[in-house]
Simulated assay, not measured.
Amino acid sequence: MEQPLRHGVYYYYSTEEYLVRSYAAKTLALLAKQEDDAEVTRVEGPAPSIEEAVAAAGTISFFGTKRIVELPMLEPSAMNEADVGALCDLMQSLENAVLVMSTVFKDDKAKLSKKAKQLIGAAEKAGLTAELVKPGPQDAKRFAVEKARELGAVLSPGAASELVERCGTDLFALESELSKLAAVADYGEITPELIAQMGTQSIEADVFEMVRLVTARNKTRAMAKLSQLLELQNEPIAIAAALSGSFVDMYRVKCGAAAHRNYAAVHKDFSYRGSDYRLRKSGETASHYSRAQLEHILSVLLGLDAALKSSAADGTVLLQTALCEVMQIGERR
């Protein structure tokens, strides 16, 4: 971020809340320092009181510094047209104040609304706007490395990838997990082994790792992973559900590709929540299977689900049998 900060308006918006909050906080800290620790007036969103914002921006500081007015978590859709217009007018008429505004849009379509475009356009004319792009896997890995460094720890080779596999590209989750792991590692080296042992137990991540072993035709390690999941007291039904979910994701991405829809479009079409990283990885794994193979595997897993819920047979044996069938289907390439 260029310093000193000279703009009258800073408006950050994204579909990623962590980035919006982070950039707004950094800007406020720099402004406060630059303006000799000037006070910040916070006017809460999602539909802030424009009268309060105007009053705060128009107040003359006794110390001759600029007034800093924060309008966090604005939601253009929650504001009426008159307030949107008044806020745009305020941005153009600032004399002794700086506005720091932020918006988290629920999706990319929301930022194209009339009121959103009006606010973004006014902010561009009056100062600086920044659309913060949703992080991808590589961005998340770089974030993990930097955050570990800030905590006084270091990620060993492969640790960042392991973290992203478990947490996805959710920066809040990554930050929380890193804070815990850094403390466990006594602010030293965080290894993939430590993450596997002490990290958040994500049955979906562990099952997907098992699926990758199946895809790589590594039967011994795949069965060992299943045994490990069971030893961790995961219910067979829960493991089967996660296994089915992984192959359903692959099937959806495979069908999407046939219809010229990429994994991001599939993520939207099926109303997935959170990051599309999961579907991206599913797409990579699905490339090793034909559509017919995936349909056959899903049929086996449907039978497994029914058996686990209705049969008196041992759940572990049913899971092991189904996993062997899945591996056999995958070998017919």
Results as ranks from 00 to 15, higher is better:
Leu99Phe: 03
Met101Pro: 03
Ala86Leu: 12
Ala110Asp: 03
Leu94Cys: 09
Thr103Ala: 13
Cys88His: 03
Leu119Tyr: 06
Leu119Pro: 01
Cys88Leu: 07
Ser102Glu: 03
Leu90Met: 10
Val100Cys: 09
Lys111Met: 15
Ala110Glu: 09
Met91Glu: 00
Leu87Asn: 01
Gln118Gly: 09
Val98Tyr: 04
Ser93Leu: 13
Ala86Ser: 14
Cys88Trp: 02
Leu112Glu: 14
Lys111Thr: 05
Leu90Lys: 11
Met101Asp: 02
Ser93Trp: 03
Leu99Asp: 00
Lys117Cys: 09
Val98Cys: 06
Thr103Phe: 04
Thr103Asn: 06
Glu95Trp: 07
Lys117Ser: 14
Met91Trp: 00
Val98Lys: 10
Ser102His: 10
Leu90Ile: 04
Asp107Phe: 03
Leu94Lys: 11
Ser102Lys: 07
Leu87Phe: 03
Thr103Met: 05
Ala97Asn: 08
Lys111Ile: 06
Val98Gly: 05
Lys106His: 11
Leu87Ile: 00
Glu95Asn: 14
Val104Phe: 05
Asp107Pro: 01
Val100Gly: 08
Leu94Phe: 05
Lys106Tyr: 05
Lys111Gly: 08
Asp108Glu: 14
Leu119Asp: 01
Met91His: 00
Ala110Arg: 09
Lys109Val: 07
Ala116Trp: 08
Leu94Val: 02
Asn96Cys: 10
Lys114Pro: 01
Asp89Ser: 15
Met91Gly: 09
Lys114Asn: 10
Cys88Gly: 12
Met101Glu: 01
Ser102Asp: 02
Ala116Asn: 07
Asp107Ile: 03
Ala97Arg: 09
Val104Lys: 13
Val104Ser: 08
Ala110Thr: 09
Ala97Ile: 08
Ala97Lys: 10
Phe105His: 04
Gln92Gly: 15
Leu90Thr: 00
Asn96Phe: 05
Ser102Val: 01
Leu99Cys: 06
Gln118Thr: 04
Ser102Gln: 05
Ala110Met: 06
Cys88Glu: 07
Glu95Lys: 15
Val98Arg: 12
Asp89Thr: 12
Ser93Pro: 05
Ser102Met: 07
Lys114Met: 10
Thr103Pro: 03
Lys115Leu: 13
Asn96Trp: 04
Ser113Arg: 13
Lys111Phe: 12
Cys88Thr: 11
Asp108Thr: 02
Lys115Phe: 11
Asp108Ala: 12
Gln118Trp: 05
Asp89Val: 05
Ser93Tyr: 01
Leu87Thr: 01
Ala97Met: 06
Ser113Asp: 04
Leu112Phe: 07
Asn96Arg: 15
Gln92Arg: 15
Met101Trp: 01
Asn96Glu: 12
Leu94Ile: 02
Leu90Cys: 11
Ala86Gln: 14
Ser93Met: 13
Val104Gln: 11
Lys106Pro: 04
Leu99Glu: 00
Asn96Leu: 10
Val100Ile: 11
Met91Thr: 07
Lys106Met: 08
Ser113Pro: 06
